[in-house]
Amino acid sequence: MENLKALSYELRRDVMDIIMAGKAGHIGGDMSVMETLVSLYFHTMNISPENQDDPDRDMLVMSKGHCVESLYAVLAKKGFFPLEQVLKEYSQFGSHFIGHPNNKLPGIEMNSGSLGHGLPVAVGMAIGEKMDGRSARVYVVMGDGELAEGSVWEGAMSATQYKLDNLTAIVDRNRLQISGTTEEVMHQDSVEERFKAFGWNVLSVAGNDVEAMNAAFDEAKAFKGAPTLIVANTTKGCGSPVMENKASWHHHVPTQEEYDQIMKDLKEREEAALHE
């Protein structure tokens, strides 16, 4: 099996190149959510360029759409489009590789960008899959700052009303948002207790540990009768001390010097992972 820990650092380096090429991107969240996406696309989900039109495929809604650069890196690695195309076209005039997911691109199911939309949409998908008796699973990735949107809780309510055990939601709990910590801006603790109160099966795991994420997704698949929420406890900017846990790196574009240091740090972690 592929070394997914090493892959997570390799793909972070692709994210760095995408952001440097487009001179834009939400780098902090891109780095925190990487293991979630790597686990989804390389361990958990039944999805590939070959079955992307198959009604039985698993589906992801990237509700924290601003972290699209990490999704581009993962989808490119998965073969949906070449990384070179992303590097050339991202944020350029007339491009479909924009700063939020859009379904004119292969591998992207739903457009997002405005926060709080993904969970209700995923609920609709999961209800539809159940209506048709398909075994496909639906995944939705949200940010923790996003949980301040009321529509998230409308979706949370309906997911348990309809007993959507084919739905898994992930909260990228990096505890930072653009203006500061989530607890300063709008308190979210405890995300776990809140979702439990809505009737969800809740798992709280080390979100930058890809094996922990794999195990959590496996457990969610096996759980019956209610949707599962995985609280992925992550570090914003995970991958280099230059950017880790800094709210100012929410959408900072690295200087050349910062880029060089981060790439070096990422390469070191990748090498270390390969030799574990």
Binding site: P55, V61, P120, V121, E154, G155
Partner: peptide, 13 residues
């Protein structure tokens, strides 16, 4: 909001 979001998800499948 849930009504319309769920509708979009249903349409997607």
């Amino acid at each position: 909001q849930d009504l319309v979001g769920i509708s979009a998800g249903l349409a997607k499948v």
